[in-house]
Write a protein that binds this DNA or RNA. Structure first.
Lengths: 194, 194
DNA sequence: GTCGTGGGGTAGACACCGTCTACGCCAGCT
DNA sequence: AGCTGGCGTAGACGGTGTCTACCCCACGAC
């Protein structure tokens, strides 16, 4: 009994998460993760046949973290769907800005292409949350619900991406992304209630 | 007179462009570019002190290519600003889908962070074209012009990104991104004229 | 108790990468 | 004629991901 020593597999993922959060995507090398986890450079291979397998496991932690944050802020935002969508968007943008390295890792297309990152277990649950809320505020003349939700998600994602990339602050002259978030929500869902 | 032998610098960039278009971002190694350009692995250093300098030069070609395509399709779309915006969006999405590796390279944030990729010379000209058109169709109740243009660009970019990533087709059930493009334009600019 | 056996981890090798440095070559100027 | 400087080559170095051989030790069979 007492606290159990964390297994090597969990230590590797934890070290990778810590590393990508702290140092960014380029620091997440297999050997550096192994060093931080206190094992030899060959050890990860027992649990992750290839580098992208380990990276995918790290990215999954990122998706789980994001989903947990979204769920929490949505609950704190009260029952109004529009308020909940605002909270979701705010959380999405904050996550991308605060954990840029992780955000980049999560959406690396080579991880997805490797087949180790399954959409149905990572991003789709989050999309379903958004789609549910969107369906509650959708007006009859709007695009079909999945398209509307997809377009709004894409808008959120694009703001997160281009803002981090640096061009949106320069082009819009804004110092924070709040105006862009409100513009996106208003555009897709109609003007805010009040 | 007569055709001049292309300089090593131009050959390197051309080989890099060709490589990233054909094989994707991971194939654009310094040594492979040098091999394809027919020079030794040390030669690029004369013209590009570091790898990211060369990558930045390649990315600039991508931006120039995209800008040229946009300019051409906009002209072919006629004088109506809404039609021109549709053409711009269509071109943006087509470019991202057809040249995924180049599109990823262009928006790699480490290239921007290296200081070799200057926003004012790459993406801002394109943004200005979009902002001009947006200003012509903006309604009084819309967000301020720069914010509106920025939000629309972000929406385009997000669609391009998430579509290529694979989650939007799965989540929306669509087989092409046309519905998303129309939804984005309608949301930000109001319903299409007819 | 002794012997196999197999999972988990180490350590070394390999090819490739980006960067650095020393070295040739050759055109052009003094 | 001789020097000089730009251009390109070639080798070295440390780092990376992957592969392979090996070791150790817990565990089951007999």
């Amino acid at each position: 009994m007492g606290e159990e020593e964390a297994g090597v597999r969990a230590r590797l993922v934890a070290a990778g998460v810590d590393l990508v959060l702290r140092e960014g995507q380029s620091a997440v090398s297999l050997r550096e993760i192994a060093r931080r986890a206190g094992v030899s450079h060959g050890a990860p291979r027992r649990y992750f046949p290839t580098h992208v397998d380990l990276l995918s496991a790290i990215a999954r932690e990122g998706f789980a973290d994001l989903a947990a944050r979204v769920e929490q802020t949505i609950r704190a935002a009260g029952p109004d769907p529009r308020g909940r969508l605002t909270a979701l968007g705010r959380t999405y943008l904050d996550f991308a800005a605060a954990h840029r390295g992780m955000f980049e890792l999560m959406f690396r297309h080579d991880l997805l292409a490797s087949g180790r990152l399954h959409l149905r277990e990572t991003s789709l649950p989050l999309f379903d949350v958004l789609a549910d809320l969107v369906a509650q505020v959708r007006r009859p003349t709007d695009a079909p619900a999945p398209v509307l939700a997809g377009a709004l998600w894409a808008n959120l994602h694009g703001i997160a991406q281009l803002w981090a990339w640096g061009s949106l602050p320069l082009a819009t002259g804004a110092t924070d992304d709040d105006a862009l978030l409100r513009a996106a929500l208003d555009a897709h869902l109609g003007p805010a209630p009040h």
